[in-house]
Design a protein around this nucleic acid. Sequence first.
DNA 1: TCCAATTATTTTAAGCTTGAACTATTTAGG
DNA 2: CCTAAATAGTTCAAGCTTAAAATAATTGGA
Lengths: 152, 152
Amino acid sequence: MNETEPVSKTRLRLWLKLLKASNRIEDEIRRKLREDYQSTLPRFDVMSALFRYPDGLKMSEISDLLRVSNGNITGIVDRLTQEGLAERASVPGDRRASLVRLTDTGRSAFAEHAAAHEGWIDRLLTGLSEEDTAAMIARLDKLIDTLEDPRP
Amino acid sequence: MNETEPVSKTRLRLWLKLLKASNRIEDEIRRKLREDYQSTLPRFDVMSALFRYPDGLKMSEISDLLRVSNGNITGIVDRLTQEGLAERASVPGDRRASLVRLTDTGRSAFAEHAAAHEGWIDRLLTGLSEEDTAAMIARLDKLIDTLEDPRP
DNA sequence: TCCAATTATTTTAAGCTTGAACTATTTAGG
DNA sequence: CCTAAATAGTTCAAGCTTAAAATAATTGGA
């Protein structure tokens, strides 16, 4: 590649490769969730958040954690509760809010999905050495730090 | 981090960071496209593909390039043509197929969006050094190679 | 105590996304 | 030449996603 490539072009190339890699992995995860569990990645993400908080999360806490809109969470939680995987409970002292928890069924279903998910990722990333994996993690940490920094 | 972490956990951590970084950047790109151009990332992607092929692409060529379903492309191209940014033309000798091209309006709009897009990526990735950028690119190339390898 | 401002969630309209079914057309083999 | 199989694109149902509007409830200051 040309040594005189402007740094903005190099960064664009980095972004396109980042996008390509994450899209390829995500496509595979979505396919496996659908085929093996008749589920979806957004449901998996919501269940994952709820799994980490056994006492439950409020709707807006879920949307904050997952960085998606409240309206989106309403729809996903509606479907999870319809299928008996999650339930809404009232919040003492605040009739506006509701607390969402996984049911026992939901917890065990998620535990199985999560184990399988880890196996899929393990297989997909087998081609990277441990050194490359560690080196990527270190640099992604730096990148994430700069992305989260509110300074311009 | 614990030296004895299983390699599958390390790979899972890598995946989650990859996802976090690409989601943060993508969210910002989507926001800027909507606020500055009243456009969307899928439209940008389709226009980008068409921009690179001035003689046009068939519908299924667009869906192959972008790795999305034909039905999705139908909808996006419908809206781009309704807004005068693209047009469909017939394919000599094959009445099933159609060829999609950007209009002059579409070409100039995309050129502006693409220049802005490069500037946004440049700004978002400013926090990474040139060494780190190159090191990431090299490793993402390896990762992409393994993801594209059809061997199990 | 009252009420404007704020908050929590749902609803809405619009865009995107998939996989499957459907329609129209082309291709290839008998 | 004929027709089954394959192909190109559209339509459909269902799920996701956003931002904004709407509704119900809470909060805090005058």
